[in-house]
Design a protein around this nucleic acid. Sequence first.
DNA 1: GTGGTTCTTGGTAGAATGTACCAAACGGAG
DNA 2: CTCCGTTTGGTACATTCTACCAAGAACCAC
Lengths: 159, 159
Amino acid sequence: MVEEQDERILTELQKNGRATNQELAEAVGMSTSACWRRVRGLEESGVISGYSALVERERAGFATSAILHVSLERHDAKFVDEFVARVKRRSEVLECFATTGDADYHLRVVVRDMHAYNQFLDEFMFRVPGIRYVRTNMILKEIKTGVALPFDTRRPRKD
Amino acid sequence: MVEEQDERILTELQKNGRATNQELAEAVGMSTSACWRRVRGLEESGVISGYSALVERERAGFATSAILHVSLERHDAKFVDEFVARVKRRSEVLECFATTGDADYHLRVVVRDMHAYNQFLDEFMFRVPGIRYVRTNMILKEIKTGVALPFDTRRPRKD
DNA sequence: GTGGTTCTTGGTAGAATGTACCAAACGGAG
DNA sequence: CTCCGTTTGGTACATTCTACCAAGAACCAC
Protein backbone atom coordinates (compact mmCIF):
# COMPACT_ATOMS: atom_id res chain seq x y z
CA MET A 1 0.00 0.00 0.00
CA VAL A 2 1.03 3.56 -0.69
CA GLU A 3 0.99 5.41 2.58
CA GLU A 4 1.31 9.02 3.50
CA GLN A 5 5.08 9.13 3.56
CA ASP A 6 5.14 7.59 0.11
CA GLU A 7 2.72 10.19 -1.13
CA ARG A 8 5.02 12.95 -0.01
CA ILE A 9 7.88 11.33 -1.87
CA LEU A 10 5.76 10.89 -4.97
CA THR A 11 4.59 14.47 -4.83
CA GLU A 12 8.17 15.64 -4.66
CA LEU A 13 9.43 13.32 -7.37
CA GLN A 14 6.61 14.38 -9.64
CA LYS A 15 7.68 17.98 -9.22
CA ASN A 16 11.35 17.24 -9.60
CA GLY A 17 12.17 13.83 -10.95
CA ARG A 18 15.88 14.48 -10.76
CA ALA A 19 15.99 15.60 -7.16
CA THR A 20 18.96 14.03 -5.42
CA ASN A 21 18.16 11.60 -2.68
CA GLN A 22 19.45 14.12 -0.19
CA GLU A 23 17.15 16.89 -1.38
CA LEU A 24 14.28 14.45 -1.41
CA ALA A 25 14.98 13.20 2.10
CA GLU A 26 15.16 16.76 3.35
CA ALA A 27 11.95 17.77 1.57
CA VAL A 28 9.92 14.93 3.04
CA GLY A 29 11.65 14.97 6.41
CA MET A 30 13.38 11.66 6.75
CA SER A 31 16.87 10.26 6.71
CA THR A 32 18.57 9.70 3.38
CA SER A 33 18.66 5.97 3.82
CA ALA A 34 15.04 5.58 4.84
CA CYS A 35 14.05 7.80 1.96
CA TRP A 36 16.21 5.94 -0.50
CA ARG A 37 14.72 2.60 0.49
CA ARG A 38 11.20 3.91 0.08
CA VAL A 39 11.96 5.26 -3.37
CA ARG A 40 13.44 1.96 -4.34
CA GLY A 41 10.35 0.19 -3.06
CA LEU A 42 8.09 2.45 -5.08
CA GLU A 43 10.13 1.74 -8.18
CA GLU A 44 10.22 -2.01 -7.67
CA SER A 45 6.55 -2.32 -6.86
CA GLY A 46 5.77 -0.40 -10.02
CA VAL A 47 4.11 2.57 -8.38
CA ILE A 48 6.79 4.64 -10.05
CA SER A 49 6.89 3.31 -13.59
CA GLY A 50 9.72 5.52 -14.76
CA TYR A 51 11.13 9.00 -15.04
CA SER A 52 10.92 11.43 -17.89
CA ALA A 53 12.23 14.77 -18.99
CA LEU A 54 9.35 17.11 -19.73
CA VAL A 55 9.93 18.76 -23.06
CA GLU A 56 8.23 21.95 -24.25
CA ARG A 57 6.29 20.87 -27.26
CA GLU A 58 6.55 24.01 -29.36
CA ARG A 59 10.16 24.77 -28.56
CA ALA A 60 11.04 21.25 -29.58
CA GLY A 61 9.46 21.79 -32.98
CA PHE A 62 6.00 20.25 -32.63
CA ALA A 63 3.68 23.04 -33.65
CA THR A 64 0.53 21.02 -34.17
CA SER A 65 -1.58 18.85 -31.92
CA ALA A 66 -5.12 17.63 -31.80
CA ILE A 67 -7.65 15.66 -29.85
CA LEU A 68 -9.38 12.97 -31.86
CA HIS A 69 -12.72 11.38 -31.16
CA VAL A 70 -12.80 7.93 -32.67
CA SER A 71 -15.68 5.52 -32.90
CA LEU A 72 -15.56 1.96 -34.16
CA GLU A 73 -18.05 0.37 -36.50
CA ARG A 74 -17.99 -2.91 -34.66
CA HIS A 75 -16.69 -3.84 -31.25
CA ASP A 76 -15.58 -7.41 -31.76
CA ALA A 77 -12.29 -8.21 -30.10
CA LYS A 78 -10.80 -8.54 -33.55
CA PHE A 79 -11.36 -4.90 -34.49
CA VAL A 80 -10.72 -3.50 -31.05
CA ASP A 81 -7.44 -5.33 -30.63
CA GLU A 82 -6.28 -4.27 -34.05
CA PHE A 83 -7.08 -0.65 -33.33
CA VAL A 84 -5.37 -0.72 -29.94
CA ALA A 85 -2.28 -2.41 -31.31
CA ARG A 86 -1.94 0.13 -34.10
CA VAL A 87 -2.42 3.07 -31.77
CA LYS A 88 0.29 1.78 -29.47
CA ARG A 89 2.73 1.60 -32.32
CA ARG A 90 2.26 5.18 -33.52
CA SER A 91 4.47 7.53 -31.58
CA GLU A 92 2.43 10.59 -32.63
CA VAL A 93 -0.40 9.28 -30.44
CA LEU A 94 0.67 10.41 -27.00
CA GLU A 95 -2.51 9.41 -25.24
CA CYS A 96 -5.42 7.12 -25.94
CA PHE A 97 -8.37 6.47 -23.68
CA ALA A 98 -11.43 4.28 -24.06
CA THR A 99 -14.32 6.38 -22.83
CA THR A 100 -18.04 6.50 -22.31
CA GLY A 101 -20.02 8.93 -24.41
CA ASP A 102 -20.46 9.33 -28.13
CA ALA A 103 -16.94 8.44 -29.13
CA ASP A 104 -15.36 5.15 -28.13
CA TYR A 105 -11.87 6.61 -27.88
CA HIS A 106 -10.21 9.91 -27.18
CA LEU A 107 -6.68 10.34 -28.55
CA ARG A 108 -4.18 13.14 -28.27
CA VAL A 109 -1.90 13.40 -31.25
CA VAL A 110 1.22 15.56 -31.58
CA VAL A 111 2.98 16.29 -34.86
CA ARG A 112 5.48 18.75 -36.29
CA ASP A 113 3.08 20.63 -38.56
CA MET A 114 -0.26 20.48 -40.29
CA HIS A 115 1.19 18.61 -43.22
CA ALA A 116 2.36 15.88 -40.90
CA TYR A 117 -1.09 15.75 -39.35
CA ASN A 118 -2.74 15.30 -42.70
CA GLN A 119 -0.27 12.56 -43.43
CA PHE A 120 -1.03 10.95 -40.08
CA LEU A 121 -4.71 10.79 -40.95
CA ASP A 122 -4.17 9.52 -44.48
CA GLU A 123 -1.52 6.97 -43.78
CA PHE A 124 -2.70 5.77 -40.42
CA MET A 125 -6.05 6.75 -39.05
CA PHE A 126 -8.12 6.31 -42.21
CA ARG A 127 -6.61 2.91 -42.85
CA VAL A 128 -7.53 1.25 -39.61
CA PRO A 129 -10.28 -1.26 -40.41
CA GLY A 130 -13.68 -1.00 -38.78
CA ILE A 131 -13.69 2.70 -37.94
CA ARG A 132 -17.02 4.48 -37.99
CA TYR A 133 -15.74 8.03 -37.68
CA VAL A 134 -12.76 10.14 -36.71
CA ARG A 135 -13.44 13.68 -35.55
CA THR A 136 -10.53 16.06 -35.20
CA ASN A 137 -10.49 18.81 -32.62
CA MET A 138 -7.39 20.88 -33.21
CA ILE A 139 -5.70 22.11 -30.06
CA LEU A 140 -5.64 25.89 -30.14
CA LYS A 141 -3.91 26.37 -26.84
CA GLU A 142 -2.49 24.26 -24.07
CA ILE A 143 -3.90 25.66 -20.88
CA LYS A 144 -2.33 22.98 -18.77
CA THR A 145 -0.37 19.82 -19.45
CA GLY A 146 0.43 18.12 -16.21
CA VAL A 147 1.48 14.65 -15.26
CA ALA A 148 1.40 14.95 -11.48
CA LEU A 149 -1.33 13.02 -9.72
CA PRO A 150 -3.22 15.17 -7.21
CA PHE A 151 -1.94 13.75 -3.94
CA ASP A 152 -3.03 16.94 -2.27
CA THR A 153 -6.68 15.89 -2.49
CA ARG A 154 -8.35 14.24 0.46
CA ARG A 155 -7.90 10.49 0.73
CA PRO A 156 -11.06 8.42 1.02
CA ARG A 157 -11.73 7.23 4.56
CA LYS A 158 -10.25 3.80 4.87
CA ASP A 159 -12.55 2.54 7.66
CA MET B 1 17.47 25.72 -32.45
CA VAL B 2 17.09 22.11 -31.47
CA GLU B 3 19.27 20.06 -33.74
CA GLU B 4 19.64 16.40 -34.34
CA GLN B 5 22.05 15.70 -31.52
CA ASP B 6 19.70 17.45 -29.13
CA GLU B 7 16.82 15.35 -30.36
CA ARG B 8 18.72 12.22 -29.55
CA ILE B 9 19.36 13.51 -26.07
CA LEU B 10 15.72 14.47 -25.63
CA THR B 11 14.55 11.10 -26.86
CA GLU B 12 16.75 9.41 -24.34
CA LEU B 13 15.84 11.69 -21.46
CA GLN B 14 12.17 11.23 -22.21
CA LYS B 15 12.62 7.48 -21.93
CA ASN B 16 14.77 7.69 -18.84
CA GLY B 17 14.76 11.02 -17.09
CA ARG B 18 17.16 9.80 -14.45
CA ALA B 19 19.80 8.43 -16.78
CA THR B 20 23.24 9.37 -15.55
CA ASN B 21 25.19 11.73 -17.74
CA GLN B 22 27.51 8.86 -18.55
CA GLU B 23 24.74 6.58 -19.73
CA LEU B 24 23.28 9.43 -21.73
CA ALA B 25 26.56 10.31 -23.38
CA GLU B 26 27.09 6.70 -24.30
CA ALA B 27 23.57 6.31 -25.66
CA VAL B 28 23.82 9.32 -27.94
CA GLY B 29 27.46 8.77 -28.80
CA MET B 30 29.34 11.76 -27.46
CA SER B 31 31.74 12.58 -24.66
CA THR B 32 30.36 13.09 -21.19
CA SER B 33 31.32 16.73 -21.12
CA ALA B 34 29.86 17.62 -24.50
CA CYS B 35 26.71 15.79 -23.57
CA TRP B 36 26.50 17.45 -20.21
CA ARG B 37 26.81 20.90 -21.74
CA ARG B 38 24.06 20.19 -24.25
CA VAL B 39 21.71 18.95 -21.55
CA ARG B 40 22.41 22.06 -19.54
CA GLY B 41 21.71 24.17 -22.61
CA LEU B 42 18.38 22.44 -23.19
CA GLU B 43 17.42 23.04 -19.57
CA GLU B 44 18.45 26.70 -19.56
CA SER B 45 16.79 27.49 -22.87
CA GLY B 46 13.60 25.94 -21.55
CA VAL B 47 13.34 23.14 -24.09
CA ILE B 48 13.46 20.82 -21.11
CA SER B 49 11.03 22.37 -18.66
CA GLY B 50 11.57 19.84 -15.91
CA TYR B 51 11.74 16.22 -14.91
CA SER B 52 9.08 14.06 -13.40
CA ALA B 53 8.54 10.65 -11.94
CA LEU B 54 5.81 8.81 -13.81
CA VAL B 55 3.38 7.33 -11.33
CA GLU B 56 0.95 4.52 -12.07
CA ARG B 57 -2.41 6.11 -11.51
CA GLU B 58 -4.31 3.12 -10.18
CA ARG B 59 -1.54 1.76 -8.03
CA ALA B 60 -1.24 5.16 -6.43
CA GLY B 61 -4.89 5.11 -5.47
CA PHE B 62 -6.58 7.13 -8.21
CA ALA B 63 -9.25 4.79 -9.50
CA THR B 64 -11.33 7.29 -11.41
CA SER B 65 -10.63 9.60 -14.31
CA ALA B 66 -12.60 11.34 -16.99
CA ILE B 67 -12.41 13.52 -20.03
CA LEU B 68 -14.63 16.57 -19.83
CA HIS B 69 -15.95 18.61 -22.70
CA VAL B 70 -16.63 22.12 -21.55
CA SER B 71 -18.24 24.95 -23.42
CA LEU B 72 -18.59 28.53 -22.25
CA GLU B 73 -21.71 30.65 -22.52
CA ARG B 74 -19.76 33.73 -23.43
CA HIS B 75 -16.20 34.21 -24.58
CA ASP B 76 -15.34 37.61 -23.16
CA ALA B 77 -11.87 37.77 -21.70
CA LYS B 78 -13.49 38.12 -18.30
CA PHE B 79 -15.11 34.68 -18.37
CA VAL B 80 -12.33 32.96 -20.22
CA ASP B 81 -9.65 34.23 -17.86
CA GLU B 82 -11.67 33.25 -14.85
CA PHE B 83 -12.20 29.75 -16.19
CA VAL B 84 -8.53 29.32 -17.07
CA ALA B 85 -7.36 30.61 -13.72
CA ARG B 86 -9.65 28.25 -11.84
CA VAL B 87 -8.65 25.26 -13.92
CA LYS B 88 -4.98 25.96 -13.27
CA ARG B 89 -5.57 25.98 -9.55
CA ARG B 90 -7.32 22.60 -9.40
CA SER B 91 -4.82 19.80 -9.14
CA GLU B 92 -7.38 17.19 -10.22
CA VAL B 93 -7.29 18.74 -13.69
CA LEU B 94 -4.19 17.24 -15.19
CA GLU B 95 -4.71 18.57 -18.67
CA CYS B 96 -6.74 21.32 -20.26
CA PHE B 97 -6.77 22.26 -23.92
CA ALA B 98 -8.66 24.90 -25.84
CA THR B 99 -9.88 23.17 -28.97
CA THR B 100 -11.86 23.60 -32.14
CA GLY B 101 -15.08 21.64 -32.45
CA ASP B 102 -18.26 21.58 -30.39
CA ALA B 103 -16.63 22.00 -27.02
CA ASP B 104 -14.37 24.93 -26.24
CA TYR B 105 -12.22 22.94 -23.85
CA HIS B 106 -11.12 19.38 -23.28
CA LEU B 107 -10.00 18.53 -19.75
CA ARG B 108 -8.63 15.37 -18.24
CA VAL B 109 -9.49 14.96 -14.60
CA VAL B 110 -8.10 12.39 -12.18
CA VAL B 111 -9.58 11.64 -8.76
CA ARG B 112 -9.47 8.93 -6.12
CA ASP B 113 -12.99 7.60 -6.60
CA MET B 114 -16.38 8.38 -8.00
CA HIS B 115 -17.41 10.20 -4.88
CA ALA B 116 -14.49 12.55 -5.31
CA TYR B 117 -15.49 13.09 -8.91
CA ASN B 118 -18.99 14.03 -7.96
CA GLN B 119 -17.57 16.41 -5.41
CA PHE B 120 -15.26 17.87 -8.04
CA LEU B 121 -18.22 18.65 -10.27
CA ASP B 122 -20.38 20.06 -7.48
CA GLU B 123 -17.76 22.13 -5.74
CA PHE B 124 -15.79 23.25 -8.71
CA MET B 125 -17.02 22.69 -12.22
CA PHE B 126 -20.66 23.67 -11.71
CA ARG B 127 -19.67 26.83 -9.89
CA VAL B 128 -17.54 28.38 -12.60
CA PRO B 129 -19.51 31.34 -13.98
CA GLY B 130 -20.45 31.47 -17.63
CA ILE B 131 -20.40 27.78 -18.43
CA ARG B 132 -22.82 26.53 -21.06
CA TYR B 133 -22.31 22.83 -20.54
CA VAL B 134 -20.03 20.22 -19.06
CA ARG B 135 -20.11 16.76 -20.59
CA THR B 136 -18.37 13.95 -18.79
CA ASN B 137 -16.80 11.03 -20.62
CA MET B 138 -15.60 8.56 -18.04
CA ILE B 139 -12.32 6.88 -18.87
CA LEU B 140 -12.92 3.14 -19.06
CA LYS B 141 -9.39 2.16 -19.92
CA GLU B 142 -6.09 3.85 -20.47
CA ILE B 143 -4.75 2.45 -23.71
CA LYS B 144 -1.75 4.71 -23.69
CA THR B 145 -0.54 7.58 -21.53
CA GLY B 146 2.69 8.92 -22.92
CA VAL B 147 4.60 12.11 -22.47
CA ALA B 148 7.38 11.57 -25.00
CA LEU B 149 7.29 13.75 -28.09
CA PRO B 150 7.67 11.73 -31.31
CA PHE B 151 11.17 12.73 -32.35
CA ASP B 152 11.26 9.62 -34.48
CA THR B 153 8.93 11.23 -37.02
CA ARG B 154 10.38 12.91 -40.10
CA ARG B 155 11.47 16.50 -39.66
CA PRO B 156 10.01 19.00 -42.12
CA ARG B 157 12.50 20.04 -44.79
CA LYS B 158 14.23 23.16 -43.58
CA ASP B 159 15.11 24.64 -47.01
C1' DG C 1 2.47 -6.07 31.38
C1' DT C 2 6.67 -9.47 28.98
C1' DG C 3 9.15 -11.69 25.38
C1' DG C 4 9.78 -12.56 20.71
C1' DT C 5 9.42 -11.47 15.96
C1' DT C 6 9.32 -8.39 12.20
C1' DC C 7 9.69 -4.15 9.95
C1' DT C 8 11.73 0.38 9.73
C1' DT C 9 15.08 3.61 10.99
C1' DG C 10 19.64 6.52 10.91
C1' DG C 11 24.61 6.30 10.29
C1' DT C 12 28.54 5.33 7.67
C1' DA C 13 32.10 4.48 3.98
C1' DG C 14 33.72 3.00 -0.45
C1' DA C 15 32.24 3.39 -5.12
C1' DA C 16 30.11 6.03 -8.60
C1' DT C 17 28.79 10.38 -10.52
C1' DG C 18 28.40 15.37 -11.29
C1' DT C 19 30.42 19.64 -12.49
C1' DA C 20 33.77 23.17 -13.76
C1' DC C 21 37.85 23.85 -15.60
C1' DC C 22 41.53 23.22 -19.41
C1' DA C 23 43.76 23.09 -23.93
C1' DA C 24 42.99 21.10 -28.43
C1' DA C 25 40.21 20.46 -32.63
C1' DC C 26 36.94 22.26 -35.77
C1' DG C 27 34.55 25.51 -39.19
C1' DG C 28 33.72 29.74 -41.56
C1' DA C 29 35.05 34.37 -43.22
C1' DG C 30 38.31 37.27 -45.08
C1' DC D 1 46.56 30.52 -45.25
C1' DT D 2 45.18 32.98 -40.66
C1' DC D 3 42.08 34.65 -37.52
C1' DC D 4 38.16 34.15 -34.46
C1' DG D 5 34.37 32.05 -32.32
C1' DT D 6 32.38 27.65 -31.20
C1' DT D 7 32.41 22.97 -29.84
C1' DT D 8 34.99 19.16 -28.38
C1' DG D 9 37.24 15.50 -25.07
C1' DG D 10 39.94 14.92 -20.88
C1' DT D 11 40.71 15.57 -16.12
C1' DA D 12 40.20 16.31 -10.99
C1' DC D 13 37.78 17.78 -6.99
C1' DA D 14 33.41 17.79 -4.76
C1' DT D 15 29.09 15.77 -4.37
C1' DT D 16 26.08 11.98 -4.31
C1' DC D 17 24.71 7.15 -4.47
C1' DT D 18 24.00 2.78 -2.50
C1' DA D 19 24.76 -1.26 0.34
C1' DC D 20 25.81 -2.51 4.53
C1' DC D 21 25.28 -2.19 9.87
C1' DA D 22 23.22 -2.15 14.57
C1' DA D 23 19.65 0.31 17.10
C1' DG D 24 14.90 1.53 17.55
C1' DA D 25 9.81 1.13 16.89
C1' DA D 26 5.56 -1.55 16.19
C1' DC D 27 3.07 -5.53 16.55
C1' DC D 28 1.10 -9.90 18.31
C1' DA D 29 0.37 -13.76 21.46
C1' DC D 30 0.25 -14.94 25.90
